[in-house]
Design a protein around this nucleic acid. Structure first.
Length: 108
DNA sequence: GTTGAGCGTT
């Protein structure tokens, strides 16, 4: 499950984020978006957790928590897909799967 | 050395 994390301190790095999420469960990978031009941290990143329950626990636990004076914003990712939606055993699949798909009719 | 709404560098 991919988790979107924002409002990160610019001084925070992937290791720190990983450590925070590892507190709530198993962390597969942590990715912090860095500007390709200036190589500066954009202040947000993504955390991938294999266990859904732990991911939710991490979101619930870290979302709104204060880190180095900044309030962390944690939620599930909405743009990338995880390999769990195609499985038929999950009827919920509450992931943002084709959530934003819509048709745009333009008239003139 | 700086900044802060929002979804992915090399």
């Amino acid at each position: 499950m991919d988790i979107y994390v924002s409002s990160l301190p610019f001084k925070l790095k992937e290791a720190g984020l990983k450590a925070l999420f590892e507190t709530y469960g198993e962390v597969e990978s942590v990715k912090i978006i860095i500007d390709k031009i200036t190589r500066q941290s954009k202040g947000f990143g993504f955390v991938t957790m294999p266990n859904e329950e732990e991911a939710k626990a991490a979101i619930a636990g870290l979302h709104g928590s204060e880190l180095e004076g900044r309030i962390l914003i944690v939620s599930e990712s909405q743009q990338k897909f995880q390999s769990s939606v195609k499985d038929s055993k999950s009827k919920k699949t509450s992931s943002a799967y084709f959530k934003g798909i819509g048709k745009s009719y333009r008239k003139k």
